[in-house]
Nucleic acid binder design. Structure first.
Lengths: 158, 158
DNA sequence: TCGCAATAGTTGCGCGTACAATGGTTGCTA
DNA sequence: TAGCAACCATTGTACGCGCAACTATTGCGA
């Protein structure tokens, strides 16, 4: 058992500021969206469905995309179905799967709220960054993500 | 009502990768900590208390630091008190306030799990960044945070 | 000094989500 | 082709947290 390698000042600043910011940021984003009558979680469902081919996704794929468990997605869809934003359709080719499909009402609602959300993202984050910061930021995050993905694919689990 | 200014590619990449990464990252961090018998949320309580003078904080201050509502903190402390990691002590000078105090058992537990958490932070994030990326990252996040703080203090609300 | 507003914490209730168990469907293999 | 394992979604249950209501304490102004 070797000595712990604690975080040095540079690491510590990066890490602490990161955690600090995202907690605050996500709450603000959710608040802004709630002011317009939808949850950040529900909004994400509409976004992913709207971007999917034929505006539909299998429950299990959607759950993975949202980082939800199957049961979590079932309950979340319940609300969206009740609101008329999403339909459940049993798949014709594989009757085990049910597809979540965006309704026209759901699409309308997304179109109505998206500008407000984009405003919110600018107001809460992007307005505080320079163009070059955004560029480096995006590139750095992308390399981090691909690094994480490749170690994950090397392992069997998950 | 002016036209919406949608995100251009640079903005989009920064934003999407950001959201994508933090969702994944936080889950992994929590998983790693759970493997060692504590929640990320509970761990944060121990960290903040350990850094506070006299290892104690007023409930309301701690709640703000954790971005929890008062009731949320009450429930979270219940678990930590039951585990023997934190004590509740009514303040002598102001009997409205109760202080959350880190016990020696709580401190021991923090000391035992901190190295594992640091390992986790390296494994999940820092190992995928270069030193200069970390440096720029920390600086950028810091300026964003201070920008957000200053607009918040200009407004009356919150 | 009295009374009222502000502050601190807890509790009842509801919502969202994870975990474990269940039922239904498919596909592989003996 | 019969049977079994894998897969998909849902349901029961428990837990964490926010909101609103409530109690206790403090401080301030008439």
């Amino acid at each position: 058992m070797s000595e712990t390698q604690w975080l040095d000042p540079v690491e510590m600043r990066a890490w602490r500021n990161f955690v600090d910011l995202i907690g605050d940021l996500m709450l603000s984003l959710d608040d802004d969206l709630r002011d317009n009558g939808i949850t950040l979680g529900d909004y994400e469902v509409l976004v992913f469905l709207s971007e999917a081919p034929d505006q539909r996704m299998r429950m299990c794929d959607l759950a993975a995309r949202l980082r939800l468990t199957p049961s979590g997605l079932t309950r979340r869809l319940d609300g969206l179905v009740a609101a008329g934003f999403v339909d459940r359709q049993v798949d014709r080719n594989d009757r085990r799967v049910t597809n979540a499909v965006l309704t026209s009402a759901g699409f309308e609602h997304l179109v109505a709220t998206a500008p407000l959300h984009v405003d919110s993202v600018r107001k809460q984050l992007l307005n505080f960054m320079t163009r070059s910061q955004m560029d480096h930021f995006g590139a750095a995050l992308e390399s981090i993500k691909s690094g994480r993905d490749s170690v994950r694919s090397e392992l069997v689990d998950r």
